[in-house]
């Protein structure tokens, strides 16, 4: 195949598609967490990238310090980082309720600097290795390409968690509380529900999603203090493209943009880092509220 003067082989195309789906898995989990938090707290969590990074470090610590393997990390690290998130909400974000949301944005921005700075201090800028769990090593032969098992697992795990979250929010009683409190928190409180506690837990859950993505990323990208800062701007672009209003929108946009990015790497590699931002500019021109967002 010859496109734009690049000679492209099929295996290369499949390979990039796969990488695109993997990146999309992370975009989806991260933008989903941002959307969940935004829905309840109407704040943009700039510390999201830092929590993602901390999730990966959580896995690393669990292994090095407690000897707990990947499967424990997959549960414990999001739980621990989510708890840190809940504490952050209680200690800091709660005090900013009623002020311009830009202040909470700046607060989370400051927190991101603190977390990232601390980790860079102790671990430098380079990456720490984290091995693929042995149950997920190796590769499947799909006939047209080899699929590393771990990569397939990341895609499946991300889809299951993303769609599971969507199901809980759209189809359960708990989700109904969340949606109702997003619309009118005072009224939900007037029904006897402790909305402030729900807000804290929601923030913790959004953060836990980021940490979960971080654990998934650890064996692929190494564990690096800067890993969150590198991905967060793209995730913001994903959120802007998808629109802040929709949970499903953030999931779908995440996966699709990952794939688009992967394809760009095949057909026009020079633009692969910027294609998401270009799409964002185009979407903003046509639909300022994003693809799935409600116009305000």
């Amino acid at each position: 195949m010859n496109v734009f003067g690049h000679v492209i082989s099929w295996p290369q195309l499949y390979g990039q598609l796969l990488i695109g789906l993997i990146n999309g898995s992370f975009y989806a989990l991260l933008s989903l967490g941002l959307a969940v938090i935004f829905g309840m707290l109407t704040i943009v969590n700039f510390a999201h990238g830092a929590f993602y990074m901390m999730g990966a470090f959580g896995a690393y610590f669990l292994l090095k310090l407690a000897g707990l393997d990947y499967w424990w990390a997959l549960i414990l690290s999001p739980f621990a980082i989510g708890a840190i998130g809940a504490i952050v909400e209680r200690l800091f974000l709660k005090r900013l309720v009623g002020l311009d949301p830009l202040y909470s944005l700046l607060l989370t921005f400051g927190l991101a600097l603190i977390f990232q700075g601390l980790f860079q201090n102790f671990f430098g800028a380079s990456g720490l290795p984290y091995a693929i769990p042995k149950q997920l090593s190796g590769a499947y032969n799909l006939g047209f390409m080899f699929l590393p098992v771990y990569r397939g697992w990341v895609i499946v795990a991300s889809m299951v968690v993303s769609f599971g979250t969507w199901l809980v929010i759209e189809k359960t009683k708990l989700g109904a509380y969340l949606r109702a409190a997003t619309e009118n928190p005072t009224m939900v409180r007037a029904f006897g529900i402790n909305v402030p506690r729900m807000v804290t837990l929601t923030y913790g859950f959004g953060v836990a999603l980021a940490a979960f993505a971080g654990v998934l990323a650890a064996p692929i990208n190494q564990v690096r203090p800067g890993m969150g800062a590198d991905i967060i701007a793209v995730v913001f672009a994903v959120v802007v493209i998808g629109g802040m209003g929709s949970i499903m929108g953030s999931i779908l946009t995440g996966f699709v943009l990952g794939v688009v990015e992967g394809l760009t790497k095949v057909f026009y590699p020079e633009a692969s880092n910027t294609v998401v931002f270009v799409i964002m500019a185009i979407v903003l021109l046509i639909r300022p509220a994003g693809l799935f967002g409600r116009a305000s």
Binding site: T186, R189, A190, F191, G192, I193, N194, V195
Partner: peptide, 10 residues
């Protein structure tokens, strides 16, 4: 608010 509601005020 939520404590009041739980006492039976609607």
């Amino acid at each position: 608010i939520d404590r009041i509601a739980r006492l039976g005020v609607a």
